[in-house]
Structure formats: structure tokens, C-alpha cells
């Protein structure tokens, strides 16, 4: 791993250790721990999206569907079939991975706007499915009483334990993703960006890697979905609607889609905005979201993370 990544990883880990210590001792931000759990869950999805958009150069406007598939598989298997949550999570990964593969193979042959529309359409179809298959999903009102998670009989039912679990998985996924980026697979993907014809001539299997990354990002989203289910204990289709897909893309773009750290930054910022800092705007959050996204795309195409080197340069200069 590169030293810059190692430093950033160390910094993130330190922050994650200190965060609950501070949050739990300052009443005003005591509930930030809860928000950070959601940040972690969305970070899981968005690391996959970042690989897909920033490295494989593809877009998906349907990732809420993979998130939902993971969540519903976990929820249904645990409540209706009393399966162990961990096994259900694995089943979710299997099902979502399979769906991602089946959808990905034909979709990734499409380019640009067509891919965007195809994934958007797929996402809406899955949401309709959640709404209509009442006997399985509980329909529009969803279902509740989904059990929490435990490890070896030790319940993870409090925020701190869940925070540790979620962010531990985020760190693992982050390291996994960074490893992929700095490997032959990551190099193959990046080479496509610069010259598809030369990549082809070097024998890089363009379409194969696009599909692998698409499935991988679906798997990340599925794990996130399972974690979400067991945390909130309640599922309804509105949590996985197409606007969530758009919001996920937005988080990645605002943070900076060509950098996986950007995805983390964007997710953190927009989730806190949505759960906490935008409460002043109440229902008008959509307006603010639109304005932020438009502003970033127009004036900061590499996202907020692009400001980091600039700031550190200014800082070093004194």
C-alpha cells in the first residue's frame, strides 16, 4: 500500500477511535454516534460506487436496489425463516451478487446515458417489486421486528457496539478496495480511461472487469443493506427508492469520484447534512441537495477531496 494511503488510513482509524469517546461525553452531540452508524453503512455502498464510477468509468443510478435486496433478504430470512442473521447476510450477498451479475452483463454493454437509464429502470423495478409482493415484503408498509445482531451470544444491541462493527467492516472494505485499486485489476481499469485501444492491445479484458466491479459494488451494497436492516429493525420500500440511488451518486460526486477517499468524505458530509444539519431546512433539503450537487459539478469537478492537497499546500507554506 502507498504511504499516503497508509497515513490516511491511520488518520481515519484514530478519528474513529476518538469519535465515540468525544460524542458520548458531550451531550449535545451524543446522538452523533447513531448518525455515524448510518454514515458507515452508506460509506460501504459508496466505496463500491466509487470503484464503479471513478475507476471503471461506469454509472449506476440503481444502487439503492442492491442495498434493498441485501436488506430485504436479511430481514425476510431472519423473521420468516428464523435464519441466523450472519447466514442471512451471506445469503443476501449471494442473491444480490447474482442479480448484479444478471443485470450487469447486458447493461454494461451499454454506454453513457443508456447505462444510466437502464440502471435507473432496474432500480425502479426492484422498488415496485418490494411494494407489490406483499406476502413476501409486507408491501408499502413493510415489516418490523427484525432481530438485532450478536456475536457468539454477545448482543450488539447498543450504539457503540454497532458503531464498532459497522466501522470495522468499513475499514476492511476500504483496505480491500485500496488493494484492488493498486493491483493488476486496478491498473487495468485505470488504463481503460487513458487509452481503451492500447488497453485492448495489451490484452486487458475490458468488459470482464467492468462486470466484476459492478458485482463487487452490488455486494458492498448488499452487506450495507443487511447491516441497515439489523440496526433499524424495520423495513419499507421507501428506504430504497430511486432518490436514494441518486443521493448515493451525489455523495460520491460531491466527495470526488476519482478517489475512494472522496466517496468517504462526500458520504460523511451529506449524511450529516441530511440527518442533522439540514433540519433547519426541513422539507426543503432536496433543494439544498440539488444546489450542492450542481455547484460541485460545475465548479469543482474533482469533488471536495481535490481541495485537500490544495489546503495542505497552503498550510505547509504557513
Amino acid at each position: 500500500m502507498r504511504s499516503s494511503n497508509r497515513k490516511a488510513l491511520l488518520g481515519l482509524t484514530l478519528f474513529l477511535i476518538l469519535f465515540p469517546v468525544v460524542a458520548m461525553n458531550v451531550t449535545a452531540i451524543g446522538h452523533y454516534l447513531d448518525i455515524m452508524i448510518f454514515v458507515g453503512i452508506y460509506c460501504l455502498i459508496n466505496m463500491g460506487l466509487s470503484l464503479l464510477m471513478g475507476y471503471a468509468g461506469q454509472i449506476s443510478l440503481g444502487h439503492a436496489a442492491f442495498f434493498g435486496l441485501g436488506a430485504y433478504t436479511s430481514g425476510i430470512l431472519c423473521t420468516k425463516f428464523s435464519m441466523s442473521p450472519w447466514l442471512a447476510m451471506v445469503a443476501g450477498v449471494g442473491i444480490t451478487g447474482l442479480v448484479a451479475y444478471i443485470v450487469g452483463v447486458p447493461s454494461l454493454k451499454l454506454k453513457g446515458h443508456y447505462l444510466a437509464m437502464a440502471t435507473l429502470g432496474f432500480g425502479v423495478i426492484v422498488q415496485i417489486f418490494f411494494n407489490e409482493e406483499v406476502s413476501l415484503t409486507g408491501g408499502p408498509s413493510g415489516f418490523s421486528d427484525i432481530p438485532g445482531l450478536s456475536i457468539l451470544g454477545f448482543s450488539l444491541d447498543n450504539d457503540l457496539c454497532y458503531y464498532i462493527l459497522v466501522w470495522f467492516l468499513v475499514l476492511l472494505t476500504l483496505i480491500f478496495s485500496l488493494n484492488v485499486i493498486h493491483s493488476r485489476i486496478g491498473r487495468a481499469l485505470r488504463s481503460l480511461h487513458d487509452s481503451e485501444v492500447a488497453a485492448d492491445a495489451m490484452g486487458v479484458e475490458t468488459s470482464r472487469y467492468k462486470i466484476i466491479i459492478f458485482v463487487l459494488s452490488g455486494v458492498y451494497a448488499s452487506i450495507a443493506g443487511s447491516l441497515y436492516t439489523h440496526y433499524v429493525g424495520f423495513l419499507s420500500p421507501s428506504s430504497f427508492d430511486f432518490f436514494l440511488s441518486i443521493k448515493l451518486v451525489m455523495m460520491v460526486v460531491v466527495g470526488g469520484m476519482h478517489n475512494i477517499w472522496g466517496a468517504l468524505l462526500g458520504t460523511w458530509l451529506l449524511t450529516f447534512l441530511g440527518y442533522e444539519w439540514l433540519h433547519v431546512f426541513r422539507d426543503f433539503d432536496i433543494l439544498v441537495y440539488g444546489a450542492i450537487l450542481l455547484g460541485v459539478v460545475m465548479f469543482l469537478p474533482d469533488g471536495l477531496v481535490a481541495l485537500v492537497p490544495r489546503m495542505s499546500r497552503v498550510w505547509k507554506r504557513g
Binding site: 468509468g57 443510478l61 454506454k111 441518486i246 433543494l287 440539488g290 444546489a291 450542481l294 459539478v297
Partner: peptide, 18 residues
């Protein structure tokens, strides 16, 4: 193309928000 997709999406969110 990716940027143009995102720009028009951003505008649609903005309109929806307004």
C-alpha cells in the same frame, strides 16, 4: 458524458426542490 448526466440530474433535483 458522466458529468453531463450528473449535471442534468442535479438540475432535475433542483427543480424538484423548488
Amino acid at each position: 458524458v458522466l458529468t453531463m448526466i450528473i449535471v442534468t440530474i442535479a438540475v432535475s433535483i433542483l427543480f424538484k426542490g423548488i
